[in-house]
Design a protein around this nucleic acid. Structure first.
Lengths: 181, 181
DNA sequence: ATGATAATGAACAAAGTGTTCAGTTATGAT
DNA sequence: ATCATAACTGAACACTTTGTTCATTATCAT
């Protein structure tokens, strides 16, 4: 990719993150981002169709990092029986989330958080989907899957506002209300 | 209240609900509501400052119905020991939610759902707050409270998309993942 | 060096917001 | 039945934001 494009892209992400520190997502205009990133108006629109798409792209970049190993596992079909441990996996994801927490906190601080939560839940569905097969219960599987995904996502949202806990502690909190062995 | 005001107010609520059936909240303009409600532009703004305030007001009306008895209990301080049973209370709330489900389903079907969820969680916090005092655990109380509230709110959101279950069944699903006795 | 690609920024049309105001109509108290 | 009051009307207005276009300039890769 052309250096100019990279530079512009990064300038926009940074400007956006900085703006999220002082303003609500809804109250940030495209013009604000353009001014903060110090780029031309048409340049922004050459990169992103809308402000929502910018947010979506930023979320994707974050998740590509957070779920890097899960993606690898999916691709290589490496679901090694003993190696695949849901508790270890969750703690692992929490560590990666912590690394991106500067971005995530800002995104979660306002309405943009809802889009983040939606995309995050999509990803987490893949993580929990297989895990639930193991459980037997008279509760509908679709209910349980939704429950686990929302539960974890809300745990993360809570953590980002109470960030003095370690990934291990958060993992413990999460599993304390969970039917997993 | 003047009959004209009542009529206008109701016309706006109905128009809004009808529009939510065909359009996303964000894509509904104030002008759409005005046209659908068949009122003058300045009349709308005499009643509601913004579209968001309209949604907030509608949510309030719904919750005033859903939590009618809880409000009564709070006012009269009627926390009679045996009479106050969390499972009965939850089932009761679910029944009331079912009665307003036509509105709620539409609101939850798009971004307006996030505002609904926020207000709903505020109300539910009051319901669960006292209940948690009874539990003892090494998990932070703030975590548990947030967990219970989000859990129930997400259960309701799931129910509104899977409405062939009865309030009793939903209550059972909810308590199946809960530490309550 | 040079052809290709990206960035610039002014100008534009379109859509929406929220306010104002002079004129109309319904309401409810007497 | 009358009438002062309060609510509704809708056109007009200024303002903000969006997304596009295009001629010009700067930067890149080779």
């Amino acid at each position: 990719m052309d250096r100019r494009q990279q530079k512009t892209r990064q300038a926009v992400f940074d400007a956006f993150a900085r703006l999220l520190e002082r303003k609500n997502y809804t109250n940030i205009t495209v013009q604000d981002i353009i001014d903060e990133a110090n780029i031309g108006r048409s340049t922004f629109y050459a990169h992103f169709e809308t402000k929502d798409e910018l947010l979506k792209t930023l979320c994707s970049e974050i998740f590509d990092h957070v779920f890097a190993e899960e993606i690898y596992r999916e691709k290589t079909h490496d679901f090694s029986k003993n190696g695949h441990n849901i508790k270890a996996e969750i703690t692992h994801i929490l560590y990666h989330l912590q690394e991106s927490s500067r971005y995530i906190k800002r995104i979660l601080s306002c309405e943009s958080g809802e889009m983040f939560m939606r995309y995050f839940k999509e990803r987490m569905t893949l993580v929990f989907d297989g895990e639930l097969e193991k459980q037997k219960s008279d509760i509908p599987k679709e209910y349980m899957l939704n429950h686990m995904v929302c539960d974890f996502a809300e745990t993360v949202r809570w953590w980002m506002k109470n960030d003095y806990y370690s990934p291990e502690e958060i993992s413990r909190f999460f599993f304390s209300t969970t039917p997993f062995a």
